[in-house]
Write a protein that binds this DNA or RNA. Structure first.
Ligand SMILES: [Zn+2]
Ligand SMILES: [Zn+2]
Ligand SMILES: [Zn+2]
Ligand SMILES: [Zn+2]
Lengths: 142, 142
DNA sequence: TGTATAAATAGAAATGATTTCTATTTAATA
DNA sequence: TATTAAATAGAAATCATTTCTATTTATACA
C-alpha cells in the first residue's frame, strides 16, 4: 500500500482509482491547477469522469491536508500537491503559477498573541505570498 | 474635507455620497460584512442604490487599501474597515465575525527569503488568523 | 471467494454570488 | 454654468461551483 492509499485510509476515504489519479496528476505538476484543468487531465485517463467528482475529491483531499488550496486574487479554486510534508507556506507565481515553499511560519508567535492578548482560539491560519517567480520577474524586467 | 474624502481623491476616485456612506457603514462595525449586507444598510440611506454599485465600490476601496477584504473559508466576499492605519493583519472570528488586529507581520522576513532564496518578486502577502474570539470561544466551551 | 453496505460516482440540473451592459446621472474642473 | 469623464441604476447574464438521484464500487466480513 503506497503513501497516498495510506493517507486516504487514514482519513476514512476509500482508495478509489479516481482519487489516486487526481493525486498522481497533481504530483506531476510544479504549478497549481484548477478543478477544470484537472478534469481535463482525468478525461485522458478515464472514459467516464464527472467534474463534480473532481470538485468533491479536491475538497476532501484538501480538508485532509493532503493537498493545499491556493488563495488566488481571482478567487477561483486552485490546488497544489506539496511534496514537503511538514507544516509550511507557499510563494505562488501569479504569472506562471509555480509554487515554491516558504520555510517560515508565524504560527507560534501568532498563537501566543491570540491567546494572551485576544483570549481567542485559533482554528487555522493563512500565510501566502503572491508574486512573480525568478523566471517571470526576469521576463517582466525586459 | 474629511479623511475619507482625502483618501478617495488620493486614489483618483470621485467623492460621491454612496462611497462615503459605504465607508460610514463600515466605520460603525466591528465585524466584517458581506456586500449584500452593506447593500441592505445602504437601502435605508438611499432611495436608489444598486447592488453592483456596492460591489464596485467595495472592490475599489479595497484596491486602495482603505478597507480590507476577508479571506473566508466559505469563499464569499466580506469587507472590513480597520481603524488602524499602519500595516498589520487580522484575527477573524468565524462565529460572530468580529475582527481584531494582529500586531505581527512577517513581511520583512518573507521578503528576504523570497529575494535571497527564490529570487522572486513579492507582489502581496496574505496573513490571516481564523478562529473564535474570546466571547465565542467561551460559549463553545459550555 | 461471495455478500452486504455504506461510500463514491456520473450526469443532468440548479444555484446564486458576482459581473456585465447600457442608458442616465453626477462630481469635478475651469 | 458648461463640459466631460466617472459613477450609477436596473436589468440581465455569467459561470464556477454545488446539488440531486440513480447507479456503481470499495471494503469488511462471513
Ligand atoms: Zn513564475
Ligand atoms: Zn503556518
Ligand atoms: Zn466571536
Ligand atoms: Zn486591523
Amino acid at each position: 500500500m503506497d503513501n497516498f492509499s495510506f493517507s486516504l485510509r487514514n482519513m476514512n476515504l476509500k482508495v478509489t482509482p479516481k482519487r489516486l489519479a487526481i493525486l498522481d496528476i497533481l504530483m506531476e505538476e510544479t504549478v497549481y491547477l484548477s478543478p477544470e484543468e484537472i478534469w481535463g487531465k482525468m478525461k485522458r485517463r478515464f472514459r467516464k469522469i464527472g467534474l463534480p467528482t473532481v470538485y468533491r475529491n479536491l475538497e476532501e483531499l484538501s480538508e485532509g491536508n493532503i493537498i493545499s488550496k491556493v488563495n488566488h486574487p481571482n478567487r477561483k479554486l486552485y490546488y497544489y500537491l506539496c511534496k514537503n510534508q511538514s507544516h509550511h507556506h507557499h510563494f505562488i507565481c501569479l504569472s506562471c503559477r509555480k509554487v515554491e515553499d516558504i520555510n517560515f511560519c508565524a504560527a507560534k508567535k501568532i498563537n501566543k498573541e491570540v491567546k494572551t492578548k485576544l483570549k481567542g482560539k485559533v482554528i487555522s491560519h493563512i500565510l501566502q505570498v503572491n508574486g512573480l517567480c525568478k523566471t517571470c520577474s526576469k521576463k517582466s524586467d525586459i
